[in-house]
Each structure stands twice: as structure tokens, then as C-alpha cells.
Simulated assay, not measured.
Amino acid sequence: MTLEKLKLAMRIDHNFDDDLIKQLKDTAEHYIMDAVTLSPNREAFFKDNPKFDTAVMFLVGAWYEQRVSSIDKALEEIPFGVTSFIQQFRGAYRDEV
């Protein structure tokens, strides 16, 4: 998922936080992939996978909104939808050597 698509999904129309969003995107991608498998062969499974892109978008959106510790709503470690995606990925992933 490109930065532009991610910002569009998050309804962000400025570039002030681009570096932060890029960092959150990279972290979210690795977080999800690492939760599914640590195999060095995993890249093909996640590439061009709309479910993966959606899970990354959910996680980045949650982390972006909750980046300030003074927000009113309760902080969540990982959004529920992302957990569901990770469980589906675990069931579908096959390590191709």
C-alpha cells in the first residue's frame, strides 16, 4: 500500500506527518508478517494481498490516532479486525521453499 492510498484512507490531506505515517506503515507490515510467520519466504504471500493492505491500514490508523497519550478513549494494543486478519493469514499461509 502506498503512502498516498494510506493517507486517503485515513483522510489526511497534509504532509506534516508523512515520515511518521511511513514509519507506522513499515512497523505495521512487519508486525503483521511476524505474527504470521518468520519465514524468509513470506514476502510473496503478502504482496498484492488486499486483506494484508487492509490490516495494515487498520493498524496504522489506530496507532496514528492513539499516538498521543492524552486521548479520551481507551488505548488498544491491536485493533480487533487486525487480530482476525492475522488468524486468517496463519491458517492460509504455507511456507513455499
Rank of each mutant, 00 (worst) to 15 (best):
L59T: 02
G81P: 10
F52Y: 14
F46V: 04
P40A: 09
A74V: 01
T2N: 12
M33Q: 10
T54R: 08
L75S: 10
E29K: 14
M1A: 05
F80K: 10
Q23F: 13
E29P: 12
I12F: 09
R11G: 04
D72E: 05
L8H: 11
R94W: 09
K73V: 06
D53H: 12
F52D: 09
F16H: 09
N49W: 00
W63D: 03
K22M: 01
R94L: 06
D18Q: 08
H14I: 08
S70P: 04
E76A: 09
F52G: 05
K73D: 01
G61F: 04
H14C: 08
F45S: 10
F89L: 06
L38P: 02
K7Y: 03
Q23P: 13
F80L: 11
I71S: 14
A74R: 13
N49Q: 01
L8S: 10
L59Q: 03
D72T: 05
R11F: 13
H30P: 13
A44E: 00
D26A: 06
E4N: 07
N41S: 05
D13T: 15
T54Y: 10
T54E: 01
L38H: 12
I71R: 15
K5W: 07
R94P: 03
Y64K: 11
F52A: 08
Q23C: 14
D48C: 05
L3R: 10
A44H: 06
L3C: 06
M10R: 11
I21Y: 11
L59V: 03
I86Y: 04
Q87Y: 11
T83S: 12
D53R: 14
D53P: 10
K7R: 13
L8F: 10
P40R: 09
F16N: 11
Y64L: 00
Y93L: 05
Y93M: 08
S84W: 00
A35P: 01
L24V: 09
R90M: 13
L75E: 05
Y31D: 02
R67Y: 15
L20M: 06
F80S: 11
L3A: 06
L6C: 02
Q87S: 14
I21H: 09
E77K: 00
E43P: 03
A9R: 07
L8E: 04
I86P: 12
D17R: 06
T27H: 14
A74M: 04
T54M: 02
I78W: 01
L75F: 07
V82H: 05
N49T: 05
Q23E: 12
D26Y: 01
I12T: 01
L59M: 03
W63N: 03
R11T: 14
Q66E: 03
K25I: 02
Y64V: 03
L6T: 03
F46T: 04
D13H: 15
V56S: 02
H14G: 10
N49C: 06
Q23V: 15
I86L: 00
Q66M: 13
L20E: 08
K25P: 05
